[in-house]
Design a protein around this nucleic acid. Structure first.
Lengths: 116, 116
DNA sequence: CTTTCATATGAACATCCGTTCATATATTAT
DNA sequence: ATAATATATGAACGGATGTTCATATGAAAG
């Protein structure tokens, strides 16, 4: 494993060094990108948005958003894996809700920006 | 243009109707997803993160992040189009910076969540 | 006006990702 | 047990997306 710094023009080496020191942990940045990527799909953000209002089961989400049960289920899997939603079973029905209210905060930060 | 509501099982019609009324404008939701999608790429979020610290030119970003000049330039184009960054020219050099400090707020909301 | 340097851009390619379709699992009712 | 219902899941397909490579643009210097 070698690092090659080949042929890169740097105009302001001082700035580059300064910012490099101030940059957050690389791994955390990757995780942050992963998190935002989950918010970056129309179906998923609609699910998140719906769950901000009410705990809901899969078929109701499917009907509300006009997306197939399978598609909703696949996206809920993603949301589960990234710990954005939690769920509870009640007989055959599984109810999903947001994992914590920080999720809503992130949504709102983006939504507000869109609304200017 | 016809809407077909075919074969969808709805368990809690009241909840579905209530949430449907409370859901934000569909177009705004799409835009919000678009916004988060831009934040959802490792290279782009690193650019955003760097520009939170300092205004920077393309080649310095390229060196800082160890990404080709072309790749940085392509991503800056995306960031320009979504109005996340602005730029100013000074001779041959073009300096990029965050368009407004609301951008940093969005980043921080996500970053904080990752850091627990 | 030609060269050099910083940046932009288009095409091509590979990878990723969301949906669909078919089917599996799990729980309740008969 | 068997049927019915709610949800999950794997494979496959098509479209989106990020990088690379080659090249273009635009500004300053010689």
């Amino acid at each position: 494993m070698e690092i090659e710094t080949c042929e890169v023009t740097v105009i302001h080496e001082d700035i580059v060094e300064k910012v490099k020191k101030e940059m957050p942990n690389e791994e955390k940045l990757q995780e942050t990108a992963e998190l935002f990527k989950v918010f970056g799909d129309p179906t998923r953000i609609r699910i998140i948005c719906a769950l901000m209002k009410e705990e809901m089961c899969v078929c109701d989400l499917s009907a509300l958003l006009d997306v197939s049960q399978s598609a909703v289920s696949h996206q809920l899997k993603t949301l589960k894996q990234t710990r954005l939603v939690k769920y509870r079973r009640e007989g055959k029905v599984i109810y999903y809700s947001l994992d914590d209210n920080h999720i809503a905060k992130i949504f709102e930060a983006g939504y507000e920006h869109v609304c200017e």
